[in-house]
Design a protein around this nucleic acid. Structure first.
Lengths: 224, 224
DNA sequence: AAAAAGTTAGACTCATCAGTCTGGTTTGAT
DNA sequence: ATCAAACCAGACTGATGAGTCTAACTTTTT
């Protein structure tokens, strides 16, 4: 069986600028996935490391070999999940390019996709975990904010700026416009999805997207 | 020392339609306040009942006499805090009356007050607690949503409807308008206040309020 | 083939903490 | 004045769970 070790490849990996880890990579990833799952389901304090190990199909000692302690495990699990979520968000934002069509349709499409990301089960779980342990581990916020949401906001602002430059929108401050747009997109979801405990239909997500874009275009549309 | 007992006044209180509780009311309230404080500071699982008792200046047995177990204590503490927060929010909404002046100024004033409520330390703590224990105790959400935020939204929708009827706003669906307005007011706060870990200046709150009302009036102002 | 690192199952330690109990004191009702 | 309920301090129980350890087994390196 072909197995990749991280530590033994550390020289090669460091050359690529990647961090070196202890243990086998496949185990590491299984543990991270299981940890996020269990922490999300039961909460950090209620979750047992034994439980995580069982769900990952791994011995408890292996978990400790990889991550040292429970808190580190939480951090890494959250960071990994945030990275995943960010990738999906960025993919949605990348569709925001001026193809000459109606900017309303374009924004509604991208808005809908962003809402889908936001309403992903894992995405809700991530925010819940983050919120829950914020008082406890304040540095978590910085990791996620700098490493995830700020990047998405930045990308979105860039795209809006280009649309504005092309005369499709009337925006003076792209950052402020993004702030308003994402508030309009995500704000209504909190209550409607009952903070992640209720599933939204695609129709309802579309409805939120069109309402958000409608209001946004009243304020920032070029024919406003 | 004059002390009010709930149980001994149960006949009188039932006549007034109020729930009867075990134990002395002053102790009960001290415990609730301390419990919220401690739960907010350390998280539900990390908080010890001994700690709550100490902070309330009360024996542990008294806590159990009043609330039976830790989970009930959390529920009641959250409910009490939500009730408090709701009262403040409703007071802000009540200022939304058409006095003949500029509706923009009016909305900005009320928006600013709502933002102040939202940014209150206790308010952030309440949302954190709620978010944290949501997976664990899903019924909490219903309590707070029905008993608190829905009431505020309802009141706000009523006021907006009156302004629309008076021709100061152009609103077809007040509920949808409230959804958008509160998204615009609160959405930007999450990131700016770093989910309650950073204090906002009054100036920054004002800025968010004017931006929100600006966008809102583009969409729903009578001269839009 | 031997060494080195990783993994495994499960036993084990040790601290923490919810909830109970006891025995005695304070407080308000009657 | 008397009684019952509420209170107190503090000891106690029992469960839970983080982190360690051992001894055998597997995989990769050399």
């Amino acid at each position: 069986m072909e197995v990749v070790y991280a530590v033994r490849m550390s020289a090669a990996m460091r050359r690529k600028g990647q961090a070196a880890h202890r243990g086998r990579l496949d185990k590491r990833q299984a543990i991270l996935a299981a940890a996020f799952e269990v922490f999300a389901r039961r909460g950090y304090a209620q979750a047992g490391v034994d439980e995580v190990a069982a769900e990952a199909g791994v011995a408890k000692a292996t978990v400790y070999n990889h991550f040292g302690d429970k808190e580190t495990l939480l951090r890494e699990a959250i960071a990994a999940s945030a990275e995943e979520a960010t990738a999906k968000n960025l993919a949605a934002v990348e569709r925001l390019v001026d193809t000459g069509g109606d900017p309303r349709e374009l924004l509604e499409d991208v808005g809908f996709r962003l809402i889908q990301c936001y309403c992903d089960e894992q995405s809700w779980a991530l925010r819940r975990l983050l919120y829950a342990e914020l008082a406890h581990l304040p540095d978590l916020l910085e990791i996620v904010q700098v490493h995830a949401s700020a990047r998405v906001q930045q990308a979105l602002a860039d795209r809006l700026a280009r649309l504005a430059l092309a005369g499709r929108l009337r925006i003076s401050d792209p950052d402020s416009a993004v702030e308003q747009l994402s508030a309009l997109l995500t704000g209504p979801l909190e209550a409607r999805a009952a903070w992640g405990t209720r599933r939204l239909s695609a129709a309802e997500m579309r409805q939120v997207a069109t309402a958000a874009v409608g209001t946004f275009l009243h304020a920032f549309g070029s024919r406003a």
